[in-house]
Design a protein around this nucleic acid. Structure first.
Lengths: 340, 340
DNA sequence: TTGTACGCGTTATCAT
DNA sequence: ATGATAACGCGTACAA
């Protein structure tokens, strides 16, 4: 058996060469490649063979310039190294890969202007669709965008033609977390909020209050501390809380990073977790299970988020109605909480 | 004052239109855009004005098809959500952004075949250069690759035309870590290795042994536990160590993730850190400072790695000799180590 | 069902 | 210094 020639990695072999080698016209090759029209079986076989022989790989650049699909989708994330969105990117990559699509990532850094720039760059590269992971863009600009190309957005609830929104049930997650603490007998539960400009942060606060109310526990504003979703803000919040001499037996942090910070603040003051105070986080980051103590938290499947978003976008691109749904938040009980 | 027209995000305005509007030929516009040749000031002014008026944005797709630069560079990382390489990606993004380049990320999952696929995909998209973050590709294939386009590779030491290699001093980092423990009076220092197929892992083992030797402490194979660079392997290594009843007062883990796992294993057995045993990690991940206790570790600037790699590639692309150098490893003393 | 001819937006080459 | 022209590799009317 003769082996076929070495595949040229950069794709020096052109569609035209394939056409020539198989004795058909370039259009026919193109049609076979894209399934644009019916082609007789024998020509198709000849072309397939030529493609294999020559190691032909379509040039995506030429393809898109000629008006075809780029088989790429733009992903606007906030920070390429975000501990939470990172796994979502992996989920996206995973499903795109199975259908021959390629993700193009760009970071908006929680800044509407930058996000818009990312989108412009991505569109200039002719992505077929766009996934926007949360961010600060207005619903309005997203709506407009969706008129130009399919868009999947996470972290909000909205409806628009050409757009699919995927949102977590932050309210329910926070309710679950607080309810867990309540069940353990805690009554003085501090809450470290996220940056209030995030709708998520507001929803989580609502969930906290709802759980309190349902249990007949009075809501105490002095127990809610402003946070910014990062470790240091959680740490400082707890230091302030301790200094305020406001008694508390548990802390619910609006995300794991702040829970880690809170945990450290407690540790520094010699307060034991969970013996003296319980902590629950939110997100279930990769590190949560290996923290000391392992953190009880709300699992917010980032991986699922990515997968669902990608799947929904593929549906949109195929003119199918997306049906992907995020799983409901789940309480993961580990070792940072215990009965009073 | 009349405002200029709304910028068309997708770039419907073409170079040809700009040429027409400013009364010059397309070639002249192109020349001005790329600085390819000298153009008279008045024509340049006219063109610049037209560009601004029309909100013209060059189409990168057409640009590259026509044989120009794509102003994009491919980055093959191992996992898009790697806690360590993630920040390197940020570093890359950061410097590319300042010079108008765009990164295209692809994940090789520590698999030479997949890495090669990534490279092919990236090259098909006509990236101007390539950054390969460590990985399993052979030096040989990298060398060949570098003949086709500029390549920057991290995690190995090699020289080849068109290629620039950037490597950490893993040996010195490990030596530093071990030496720190030795200085604190520890003599029975366990070492959790990384996956031995990584050259890094071998270097770190060498550094550990060298420090021991320099201090006149006997190397005990029973104190070195195989690990796989992730938390669970660190955890299991320590469980095995404890069960072996081999006495030890300190642990040096070849990366932070394994150190976290080790820490958890100790915690589960009621062994206190650093009171009973000291731990030092390697990498200085984002979470290391907020671990309980905050982890003493070797700082291996991932951000710098990314920045240097990007800078070196930009140099290569500009036909300049890259000079970027990684900073030497630094010992970060936090709270997981203490004198015996 | 298949082929021809043209266009996508830009850059390189060759004139001038 | 500037312009005309021909690629770049593919998709798609349109014609056959």
């Amino acid at each position: 058996m003769k082996r076929s020639k070495t595949v040229h990695p950069a794709g020096k072999v052109t569609l035209g060469m394939v056409a020539q080698a198989s004795g058909v016209s370039p259009s026919t090759v193109s049609r076979i490649l894209n399934g644009t029209a019916v082609v007789s079986q024998d020509k198709k076989d000849a072309v397939d063979r030529a493609i294999a022989e020559l190691g032909f790989v379509p040039n995506p650049i030429a393809r898109v310039l000629a008006g075809g699909r780029s088989l790429s989708v733009g992903v606007v994330t906030q920070s390429i190294d975000s501990p939470y969105y990172g796994v979502a990117l992996r989920g996206i990559e995973e499903v795109l890969d199975t259908v021959g699509y390629v993700p193009l990532f760009a970071s908006g850094h929680w800044n509407a202007k930058e996000e818009q720039r990312c989108i412009d760059t991505l569109r200039a590269r002719r992505v077929d669709g766009l996934i926007v992971l949360t961010g600060r863009l207005s619903d309005e600009s997203l709506r407009k965008l969706a008129k130009e190309l399919p868009v999947v957005v996470t972290g909000r609830t909205m409806k628009a033609p050409g757009l699919y929104a995927l949102n977590f049930n932050d309210f329910e997650g926070a309710r679950l977390a607080t309810h867990h603490l309540l069940t353990l007998g805690h009554r003085q539960i501090a809450f470290i909020t996220g940056d209030p400009v995030h709708p998520d942060a507001q929803e989580r606060l609502r969930g906290y209050r709802a759980a309190l109310e349902a249990a007949g526990v009075r809501y105490q504003p002095s127990l809610v501390l402003p946070g910014l979703f990062h470790e240091d803000s959680g740490l400082m919040a707890v230091e302030r809380l301790i200094d305020s001499r406001q008694p508390f037996t548990a802390i619910f942090a609006a995300n794991d990073q702040m829970a880690f910070g809170a945990n450290l603040a407690l540790h520094r003051r010699g307060i034991r977790v969970p013996d003296d105070v319980s902590i629950v986080g939110f997100d279930d980051l990769a590190g949560a299970g290996h923290a000391i103590p392992p953190l009880t938290t709300i699992h917010q499947a980032g991986l699922e988020l990515g997968r669902c978003a990608a799947q929904a976008l593929m549906d949109l691109l195929a003119d199918k109605k997306p049906t992907a749904q995020l799983p409901e938040p789940r309480l993961i009980i580990r070792s940072s909480t215990r009965a009073l």
